[in-house]
Simulated scan of single mutants.
Amino acid sequence: MKHKIYIKNMVCNRCKSTVINELNSLGYDLDSLELGQVILTTDAVIDYTNIQKVLGEHGFEIITDDIQVLIEKIKITLMQKLENQEVSNLSVFLPKTFSKPYSALSKIFSKNEGITIEKYLINLKIEKVKEYIQLAQLNFSEVAYSLNYKSSSHLARQFKNVTGMSMSKFRDLQKWNRKTLDQIV
């Protein structure tokens, strides 16, 4: 029998690896795993309390509420789109992805997270900018282009609005005050 478990804060390949290792150590067979969810194959009763305890030690949380599952899926979709440099018009691709009107998705997200989907995406982008600055592989114009900004000045204004400092100042400080993706909200 297959059991789908939704997991909050699973945002990267290292997270997936950790979940696999922990569930295997508990004796569960995984049918499939993707960001935010795992499917277990077992005829035995699943000890959700023990799974939550073990995964909770790594900052993960089992989600059972349908609205929280939807919000986590929206976040993961935005992270994946950003990573693949595919972020375009939110009001077009989110309704296609979730088969719900954008206004409904936006209201659910804002009500539960205290931030709009757009602001969440901006915060994701700013963390990506910080990563690019830290790696020092791209100049500011190339960073703006890679994140689909219309201009580097637009990115610069947004960066300053979110962080309170310019990208140059952030680079010069070399104090990489970055948030992990699961802490953005």
Rank of each mutant, 00 (worst) to 15 (best):
Ser17Ala: 15
Ile76Asn: 15
Asn112Glu: 13
Asn84His: 12
Val11Pro: 04
Gly27Cys: 03
Gly36Gln: 01
Lys150Gln: 09
Val45Lys: 14
Asn9Phe: 08
Thr180Asn: 11
Ile184Gln: 03
Arg14Asn: 15
Lys73Tyr: 00
Ile63Tyr: 06
Asn24Asp: 07
Leu90Phe: 07
Ile74Asp: 06
Ser88Lys: 13
Leu55Tyr: 06
Lys2Gly: 02
Leu33Ile: 15
Lys130Thr: 08
Glu118Lys: 13
Ile62Ala: 00
Ser17Val: 11
Gly36His: 07
Asn112Ile: 03
His58Gly: 01
Met167Ser: 03
Asp182Gln: 14
Asp31Pro: 00
Gln183Val: 08
Gln37Trp: 12
Asn139Ala: 02
Gln137Ala: 06
Lys175Arg: 04
Met1Leu: 05
Lys100Asn: 12
Thr77Asn: 13
Trp176Lys: 00
Lys107Met: 09
Ile7Val: 14
Phe109Thr: 01
Met165Ala: 05
Lys107Leu: 07
Lys175His: 11
Leu155Glu: 04
Trp176Phe: 01
Asp65Leu: 05
Glu61Thr: 11
Pro95Ile: 14
Lys53Trp: 00
Ser103Asp: 08
Val11Asn: 15
Ser25Cys: 11
Glu127Asn: 04
Leu124Ile: 10
Glu127Ile: 04
Val45Trp: 06
Gly27Ser: 13
Asn89Lys: 14
Lys16Cys: 06
Val143Trp: 02
Gln137Glu: 10
Cys12Val: 04
Asp31Tyr: 14
Asn177Trp: 00
Ser99His: 13
Cys12Leu: 03
Lys100Asp: 09
Ile74Met: 05
Leu135Asp: 11
Gln134Ser: 08
Gln183Gly: 00
Leu23Arg: 12
Pro101Glu: 13
Gly59Ala: 10
Lys53Ser: 15
Gly164Asp: 09
Lys111Pro: 04
Val69Trp: 03
Asn139Arg: 01
Met10Lys: 05
Asn13Gly: 12
Leu147Ser: 02
Leu105Val: 11
Leu155Asp: 07
Tyr6Ala: 13
Leu94Asn: 05
Lys107Glu: 08
Ser146Gly: 02
Ser88Arg: 10
Met167Ala: 04
Gly27Asn: 09
Asn123Glu: 08
Phe109Val: 07
Ser103Lys: 12
Ile74Gly: 09
Glu22Phe: 09
Phe93Val: 14
Asn123Pro: 03
Ser91Pro: 02
Phe60Tyr: 12
Ser88Tyr: 04
Asp66Met: 12
Gly59Gln: 06
Asn50Cys: 03
Glu131Asn: 07
Lys119Gly: 00
Ala104Gly: 10
Asp172Ser: 08
Val92Asn: 07
Asn21Gln: 13
Leu181Met: 08
Asp182His: 15
Lys169Gln: 02
Ala104Ser: 15
Leu124Tyr: 11
Phe109Arg: 09
Glu113Pro: 10
Asp47Cys: 07
Lys73Ile: 03
Asp66Glu: 14
Gly27Met: 05
Arg157Gly: 02
Glu34Val: 09
Ser168Thr: 12
His3Ser: 06
